[in-house]
Design a binder for these strands. Structure first.
Lengths: 214, 214
DNA sequence: TAGATTGTTAATCGATTAACAATC
DNA sequence: TAGATTGTTAATCGATTAACAATC
């Protein structure tokens, strides 16, 4: 099935976007689409669509196009959204709460099974269906549960301490909202960073250079 | 000063990262750094550092290196972080609250001057130093205040309606947390999108392909 | 002056786009 | 069969890296 073992991250990062647009088309009960039309909708080139998809297999049919529902499923599988990776949330502050409540983890390949905070006031409160636990229970929880991922929503200065523990318990995948550089310390981790301030600074730059950009 | 009028977005997106590392070095009272050392710290090539910086000017000194504090300031200026762009927040849900409380807007070139929500229960409550206002007050507020940017923390389906109003009042810069495609509808807008679910899906892919990646 | 390190040009690498033969 | 559209190769474009002359 896979025609190309060395898929570039540029391609990977476009997959969620394909997935979103295909999901929409699917909801609109559109059952076939050509690379040209899909490209139009997504504001990319038809060549890119075909090249991207062909990294993973020949999902289309010459003369016809692509089956929307099939292609959506294929990308779902490529991304691995049918997984049920167990995740824990570290930090139930504003950001942690937002992340926990805002995301539909089941549709994204994850299940949030616990959340921790160092603040006594938060401990015992509910977050979704979970009761927030104190950081001191982390060790016990990690020993008794298989955890695939940690979502880090704590300040940068707190990360190293927690990370050392989590890594010690074999957790090697992180969704990281801090600026702490996880992969530098532990090179066999997989990390997705969300740098909100970087994004806002980029907007600031664009605003300063409106004329050059538009 | 600017040697290159057509800076690529690849370069721009690296600037916040330079800025962060330089800020750290500055806090550690390190006053000079060579492209080689900076590259090492940032895990990039020295060539890239020099190329990137030279898009904007010759900030270094041959035989010596770069002044940390000067370079930090230069990038601060390039990004426009000394601005005081007036921003309003639309949506004071979990995500909106997290964004409002979590970010240090002043250091990022912005000032949050109001926030709005359509939920009567939230109206009147405080968010930072601001009182959450009902969406129905948006028109009046926009007429009486100069607003540069809107931070959209509302569900996708709610965006178009609000966007039309905001655009009508001349707001053309958006920090967008929804999947609504603002730039498609209004092509003279500047948009920074934050797609949290895309990031998590990418992590999911990486986890599924750990062996290929690491 | 000698050593260090930049600024900048040239070479390489990778990603995107164009073109078209294969085929449904 | 004729028309449409893919899969795939080749061409182009842009970004990264290497090299080195300029110079502090």
């Amino acid at each position: 099935m896979s025609r190309n073992d060395n898929i570039s991250m540029s391609v990977i990062r476009r997959l969620p976007r394909y997935y979103r647009f295909l999901s929409e088309l699917n909801e609109q009960n559109i059952d076939k689409i050509s690379s040209t039309k899909l490209a139009e909708i997504m504001n990319v080139t038809a060549s890119q669509v075909r090249q991207d998809l062909n990294c993973f297999g020949g999902f289309g049919q010459q003369g016809y196009g692509y089956s929307v529902s099939q292609l959506k499923e294929e990308i779902q599988n490529i991304l691995g959204l049918n997984n049920n990776y167990k995740a824990i949330l570290i930090g139930a502050g504003n950001l942690g709460k937002a992340v926990a409540k805002h995301m539909n983890f089941e549709k994204l390949g994850f299940e949030l099974i616990a959340c921790f905070d160092c603040n006594e006031e938060k401990v015992g409160k509910k977050l979704n269906n979970l009761t927030i636990m104190h950081d001191s229970l982390l060790d016990e929880f990690c020993q008794n549960n298989k955890i695939n991922t940690a979502f880090l929503c704590i300040p940068r200065v707190c990360v190293e301490n927690v990370l050392d523990k989590l890594y010690g318990y074999g957790i090697k995948n992180y969704w990281n909202f801090s600026h702490y550089d996880i992969a530098r310390k532990y090179s066999d981790t997989l990390v997705e960073n969300v740098h909100l301030s970087d994004s806002l600074m980029t907007l600031c730059y664009k605003m300063n250079n409106r004329d050059k950009i538009l």
